[in-house]
Simulated scan of single mutants.
Amino acid sequence: MIVITAPTGNIGHKVLDTVLAGDQPVRVIVRDPARLSTDVRDRVEVIQGSHGDPQVVIRAFDGADAVFWLLPPDRQAAGADEAYVGFTRPAAEAMRSQGVKRVVDVSALGRGTPYAGRAGHVTASLAMDDLIAGTGVAFRALAASTFMDNVFRQVRVIKEQGVFFDAVSPDIKRPTVATRDIAAVAARLLLDTTWTGQEEVPVLGPEDLSYNDMAAVISEVLGTPVKYQRIPGQAIKDRLTGSGTSDAMVQSMLDMMAAKDNGLDDGVARTPQHAIDTPTTFRQWCEDTLKPAVQAA
C-alpha cells in the first residue's frame, strides 16, 4: 500500500498519476475528495481529512508500505517551525506506531552549508526531515532546488508588463528544477520496494541559471522582451502581508531568499546523474508550460 498526501497539488497529483500506472494499491489523504477526478477516485482508497490530523494519519498509515509526504502551504502559521515540524509531528508518530516501512518527502537544498540554520523555510524543512528520520523509517528526502514553476505565479505580469519580480540577485546562477521531475523521482522511489536506509536525494534540474538567464530564455520562447526586476524585500513583505500571510512566514521567506543569495544551494556538487534524474530544461518548461499559459492569460 502506497499512501500519497496532497494528491491534488502541483507535485502530488503528478506523483499520484505515475504511481497509479504501477501495480500497487494506493491510498490518498485529501480534504475534498471532489477535487479528485472520477477515474482517480475509482482507483484509490480515499481517507478524507487533513494529513496534519493525528486520527487521519493513523487511519491512513495503517498497513502502509510507503508514504509520500508533502506539506500543504500555510501562509498564516505562527512560524515556519510550526508550519513544517508542528504539522508533521502527528504523522511522524503515526509512521512509527503503524509500522510504515518507507517515506519519501519533498524538502530543500542547504544541509551542511553555513546558512542552513538561518534560512527560514529551508531551515524548517530540514528540521522536518530530521523528525521523520528519527522515527527509524527508511527515508529519502528529495532536496529540491528552486522550482521553475514559481515563475508561473507571474504569468499575467509577464504578459502585461514584460517583467517578473523577486528579491534575489539577478546574476547569481542557481540550480532550478521542474516540479514534474521532482514528482517523477518521488514516484520511482515509491514504487521501488528494495531501498533501505536514510539519504538525501538532491533534485537539481539539468542546469544552473541566474534570473537574468531565465529572462533571456523567456524572451526567446515568447518572442517578446521580458526582464527580471529585483525588488526590495520590504515590497515583497508588504504584498504578502497585504494578502494575508503572517509576519513570521513572510520573514521566513525573506530569510530563505537571503540565504540563497549567499550560497545556500551550492552545497551539492553537480554530476551528470542530476541531469538524468531531472532532465527538464528551463527552455523546455517555458515552451510547454509557461508559453501556453501566457497566451491564454
Rank of each mutant, 00 (worst) to 15 (best):
V155M: 12
H121W: 04
G117Y: 11
G120L: 05
F164L: 12
V122W: 02
A92H: 01
K173W: 00
D171E: 14
I172T: 02
R118A: 15
K101I: 14
S169N: 10
F152Q: 12
R111E: 11
R153P: 09
T88Y: 06
V100Y: 00
G162A: 06
G136W: 07
D166Y: 00
A144M: 13
S107C: 08
V137A: 01
F139C: 09
F165T: 11
V104I: 10
R111D: 13
A133I: 08
A138N: 11
L109S: 03
G117W: 14
D166T: 04
K101S: 15
V163C: 05
N150I: 05
L131V: 14
H121G: 04
V151S: 06
Y84H: 10
A124N: 01
S107E: 01
V103K: 00
N150C: 09
E160A: 15
V155Q: 03
P90N: 11
F87R: 12
S145K: 00
E160L: 14
Q154P: 01
V85S: 11
R102F: 07
A124S: 02
V85A: 08
I158T: 03
A133E: 11
V122S: 02
G117I: 12
M148F: 15
V106G: 00
A133P: 07
Y84Q: 12
R140D: 03
A91Q: 01
I158F: 04
R102K: 09
G136Y: 02
R89C: 08
T135Y: 04
A119Q: 05
L142T: 03
L126W: 01
L131S: 10
L126I: 14
H121C: 06
P90H: 07
F152D: 11
P114G: 03
N150H: 09
A124R: 00
A108P: 10
M95G: 05
M95Y: 04
R102T: 06
R89E: 13
A119Y: 00
G112R: 13
A108Y: 07
I132S: 03
V155I: 15
G112V: 13
T135K: 01
A116N: 13
V122D: 01
G162W: 00
F139V: 09
F165I: 10
A141Q: 08
L142W: 09
V104Y: 01
A144I: 00
E160F: 10
I132C: 04
L109M: 06
A92Y: 06
D105M: 06
G134F: 09
K101D: 12
A138F: 00
R156N: 13
G134H: 12
S145R: 01
D149M: 08
M148E: 09
D171C: 09
G134S: 14
I172K: 02
G99R: 08
A108R: 08
P114D: 10
R96A: 15
R153L: 15
F139H: 01
A94S: 13
N150F: 14
A116K: 04
R96F: 13
